[in-house]
Design a protein around this nucleic acid. Sequence first.
DNA 1: ATTCAGCGCGCC
DNA 2: AGGGCGCGCTGAAT
Length: 553
Amino acid sequence: MHLIVDHHPEGMLVTDDRGTVEVASAADFPAYVAQREQSADPPRWVWSDTALWYPPLLRSGVRVERCHDLRLVEAILAGVEGRPVRPFADRTRSVVASSGGRQETALFDLDDAPRRADNAPPAAALHAEQVAALARGSDAAPGSLALLAAAESAGALAAVEMTSTGLPWSADDHERLLLEALGPRPEAGRRPDRLAALASEIEQALGARPGALPLDSPPELMKSLRAAGIDVATTRSWELQKHSHPAIAPLLRYKSLSRLMTANGWNWLDEWVRDGRFRPTFVPGGVVTGRWASDGGGALQLPRQVRSAVRADEGWVLVVADAAQLEPRILAALSRDEAMARAGAGVDLYQGIVDSGAVASREQAKLGMLGAMYGGTTGQSALVLPRLQRVFPQAIRFVEEAARAGERGETVRTRLGRTSPSPGEAWRERQLLAATEGASEAERRDSRTAARSQGRFTRNFVVQGTAAEWALAWMAGVRRRLWRAEGAPLHRQPHLVFFLHDELMVHAPRERAEDVEDALRAAAADAGRVIFGRAPVTFPVTVATVERYSEAK
DNA sequence: ATTCAGCGCGCC
DNA sequence: AGGGCGCGCTGAAT
């Protein structure tokens, strides 16, 4: 049963599968949805944009089990041959998302109600079109696109719920950590003690006058380093590490601490943590590959340095689960490489590769696989690639073919049918130009570089994008297993609080920890079957029940 | 005064 | 000369 919701001068227009039309006033809408959710077979809500429609419902205490997000599905379908791109599908950041999750509106009133963009078609018409397109599918396996649409939409619900409950965050612990690393919080515009001390240490080592060293300006700093005889082309830390000048060690320390302060220091804490919660906005489908992005607070780049501040409430725990070596397993399943599947039979696929005799060490296995999936052509990874190719020819051929397709300017698809973006007019023109007779050596070289770059992108797209699909299926399964439509509000029962590409975190009352662990494992096993059918590849997850995020792994 | 690209670094 | 991101900062462009 679908219920399509749309805007109406007097409130919300609701259309069901039989064409019955009702209008609910904006004020009554949450109660209307709540009542429908109580039925034995709750509907799938069809709406323009989950990030617009769902937050007001959640604020009224109403959860929704299933939905169809027209905007996200439109973006997926935009990659299907011959379908015109709807303007509103281009918007990857919703109006609500741009507020950074900082606003809190109490109720669902008319002014607050989501409005359809002028250029968006009516929801019912667009839904009918999308359902037909999903059923036709792409050249991927039949049914895959519909599955992808459902998984993407489930993710959209989870994303809004995670923002609404927030990630448990101890501001006290965070401040303690900053005090220990940097010293007391300085006045605005001044360096904390620890950074000031390091700055003078660096100045001394370089023979610079106090305050004369532009430590926070890479181009200026580079000039100063070169003037002091440290021959660097950039000020990247890995470049600096190669030199053994006495200024290097304190400089690296300075950069690391300075980074902590600017990215996750006191200002960050002021801006992003309220009432013991960090509330980033998650942006499903925010990355071309289908990965999520985030908006505000750098949620997907939380440095390990501050993860000890992620702390469960009293009497609660964090259940943290991580899919072990997800991407190589995805590649094994995509390519149906049985030898690689066997290597992944245990929890550690890289060790399995060592045991297969392909390479000598776990580190080599990891480097080699990453190189194969990213298109690395230098160093250790390139060195072991031929060995991997001999033992896992099918897997390596799979990524090579994706790369060749990209180099030819073609698009590639994930397992469920998400399409990579086309390389664009400028890219094509450059390729054509380089292929003409009068093309210069430089033009040919540039076009070759651009082609290889596109090849690395498509090579990675199939793996990263399919891994994102597996993760969505996993998350949807976890959410379904934790689901309780009635009873306690979301924040009083186990709920997802964080998602990081191949990692999920659930905040749960301590006595529910075992249930949650089971749910995380069971959903992972399901996800493999949902995406790949009866492939021999396993997707083990490591699960840890902890009080602080830093204790996991 | 404001916008923007590039750098550098955090995460996967 | 390895894929995908977000963000703070700087310095040049507007």
